[in-house]
Amino acid sequence: MRVRLRLFEFEDLPWFPAVIRAGMMDYLRFMISALGTYRPIAPLLAEGLARTHQTQLLELGAGAGGGTETVLAALRAHGQLNTTITLTDLYPQPAAWADIARRTHGAIGYEPAVVNALAVPAHLAGFRTIFSAFHHFPPAAAKALLRDAVQARTGIGVFEGAGKHWAELLLAVTVLPVAQLLLTPFFRPFRLSRLVFTYLIPIIPLCTIWDGSVSLLRMYSTNELLALAQAADPTGQFVWQAGKKQHWWGPQVTYLIGWPAIQSTVTLVAK
């Protein structure tokens, strides 16, 4: 799928009801975690942590924290035994994050204050990551996000849980909505509002269908990701890689990852 459309997503709108946004994020967290969507990129993150001599990941645009526990487990399986993760977002979800922190005994923590991914506060250190959210940023903002990481001299990894194929768009409007209706009662923590706005007034599934479809249409290709990286880092302070990683059962993860270069020349690699 080469087309890229700048349509709106409900969850981006500042007036969008927090209770609906939370319900949508709960679904996304459940599916990403259950499917182990981001497990294939663990070796890339492990290399990034090793090259930057860090043990802390700073997750930007964390939403409800979907898949973060899977990523942590996969990193530890790749030798990063002391890795910890801090969740942040422009729309913090401390209730959902506190549950993750409890389950991981504090290995995954969170910043309760609002965090703008384009200007991360200096006290929030760590190798930066952004999962399933980079497509929300138009090119100018996406470049600013990457530039902020370059200026902070910290590594950054951008990951989207899809390969941008038409078949994925078909799934987003057929199979996945049915899965959402079947699985919603099992989402934790329990929210009565989630049941009300899924079954009695189905705003959550309808908005999820729209946002899920638009997300695929807004995704950057690997070449576009590399172009953004070069624009954000014109003097070649970082080494950049972009490509796709295949999950063992089929789906792909599109990624861009970069860390400070030893030499001053830039390296752009599409894989």
Rank of each mutant, 00 (worst) to 15 (best):
R2H: 15
R2E: 15
V3T: 12
E9A: 02
L13K: 08
W15N: 06
W15T: 10
W15L: 12
P17F: 12
V19R: 12
V19G: 00
I20V: 13
A22N: 03
M24S: 04
M25L: 05
D26T: 09
D26R: 12
Y27R: 15
G36H: 04
T37K: 06
T37N: 02
Y38E: 04
P43I: 01
L44F: 05
E47W: 05
R51Y: 00
T52P: 14
T55I: 14
E59R: 04
E59T: 05
G63T: 01
G63D: 01
G65K: 01
T68Y: 08
L75F: 11
R76L: 14
R76P: 14
Q80P: 10
N82M: 14
T84V: 09
T86V: 11
T88M: 07
A95F: 10
A98C: 07
A98Y: 06
I100F: 03
I100L: 01
R102P: 03
T104P: 02
H105C: 01
E111V: 01
P112T: 04
A119P: 02
L124D: 06
A125P: 08
F127W: 06
T129P: 03
F131N: 01
H135G: 04
H135M: 07
P139C: 02
A140T: 15
A140D: 15
A141M: 07
A142Q: 00
A144W: 05
L145P: 00
L145M: 13
L145S: 10
L146F: 01
L146T: 10
L146I: 15
R147H: 13
G155V: 05
E160N: 03
G161R: 05
L169V: 15
L171V: 08
L171S: 07
V173W: 06
A179E: 03
L181D: 07
P189F: 01
R191M: 00
R194I: 03
F197W: 15
L200N: 09
L200Y: 09
L200K: 10
I201G: 12
I203R: 10
I203M: 11
P205F: 06
L216R: 02
L217P: 06
S221G: 09
T222N: 03
E224S: 06
L225R: 02
A227N: 04
L228F: 09
A229D: 06
A231Y: 10
A232W: 01
A232L: 03
D233E: 01
T235D: 15
G236A: 06
F238R: 08
W240I: 00
W240M: 00
W240C: 00
A242C: 07
K244W: 03
H247Q: 12
W249G: 00
V253S: 02
T254L: 07
Y255H: 04
Y255L: 02
L256A: 14
I257F: 11
W259V: 07
I262Y: 13
T265W: 12
T265E: 14
V269Q: 10
V269Y: 08
V269C: 09
A270Q: 14
